[in-house]
Design a protein around this nucleic acid. Structure first.
Ligand SMILES: [Zn+2]
Ligand SMILES: [Zn+2]
Ligand SMILES: [Zn+2]
Ligand SMILES: [Zn+2]
Lengths: 149, 149
DNA sequence: AGCGTAATGTAATGTTATTACACCACCTTC
DNA sequence: GAAGGTGGTGTAATAACATTACATTACGCT
């Protein structure tokens, strides 16, 4: 059961262990649901899914777990969608750019440290210290550019 | 009274007229409050301010007006702060980058079309059509870099 | 066993945003 | 100048998103 999800979960477990933290049963369930969703999910949708297997789950249950996973770098919060998505490369140091489609609400993560470094330098010139971990760019994904509707 | 605010309001009026839209009394009051605030303001804080001079104001009053002003390009919504800020250069075509300080929640708008064009091109390479009007970058402003607290 | 900290449960509340429908002002057309 | 359409606003209710505060449990350590 859920065999296909084991690898990322195990990776998360080691990743957390290296930080002195634990992937508890609750966290495992939440992360599993996040992975199963493919793409960003809203906190309350996640809560609804979680409640199917853990009836007592409440908003704090899911928000606490999300906060933890976000702090650990395993999950990213997408401000423009008020949603959460698993980072595809959380186990490796990276400077991801989150490409958020304004039409289908899909999110793609592009790792381009070189590009980020350029931006960082440009902005430093105007006295602003960019946070290199969570850059969110809105636009249209490849699919959504075609359809105008 | 409010003499200093007249110029931007008048500019907004002409700008809207050119689009076939009107700066009604309500919209004028809301925009005036936004201008008076300097920096981003939350919808419900704006509502509270508005209610002082317009007791019947309710959430739809302010959200409708904000939606209108955002659509007209006069106001920007800051996703990461769930706040709204007047665009300092709405009357001129521009491609602003919103530099959002994660500590003091200040927002600075940097107009750098050249830089934006570079980004647009880079991203187009990966099939993503960036929205050039609302790029939001998180980080620390000049003041907040000093203090670590 | 006794203690301290991390994790979770639970109830209530706070904050942000939308829906639905009523009403009015204004403009156009007949 | 009545009828009808549109845009703008009023009002009530509710939905959606997030946090606080406190109780309880799990678990490693002495
Ligand atoms: Zn990532
Ligand atoms: Zn899309
Ligand atoms: Zn602007
Ligand atoms: Zn600052």
């Amino acid at each position: 059961m859920a065999r296909i999800m084991d690898a990322p979960l195990d990776t998360a477990e080691s990743w957390l262990a290296a930080r002195g933290e634990k992937l508890t049963e609750l966290r495992r369930e939440v992360l599993s649901l996040l992975l199963a969703n493919h793409g960003p999910i809203k906190a309350y949708d996640l809560l609804a899914a979680l409640q199917k297997q853990r009836p007592g789950a409440s908003p704090p249950t899911v928000y606490r777990t999300l906060d933890f996973l976000v702090a650990a770098g395993i999950v990213h919060r997408i401000d423009s969608l008020q949603s959460f998505v698993v980072c595809p490369t959380f186990h490796a140091p990276h400077q991801g750019v989150l490409l958020v489609c304004e039409r289908c609400h899909g999110v793609e993560e592009l790792d381009s440290p070189l590009w980020m470094e350029t931006m960082r330098r440009e902005l430093a010139g105007s006295g602003f210290a960019m946070n290199q971990h969570e850059l969110e760019i809105k636009g249209l994904c490849r699919n959504c550019q075609v359809v105008t509707v």
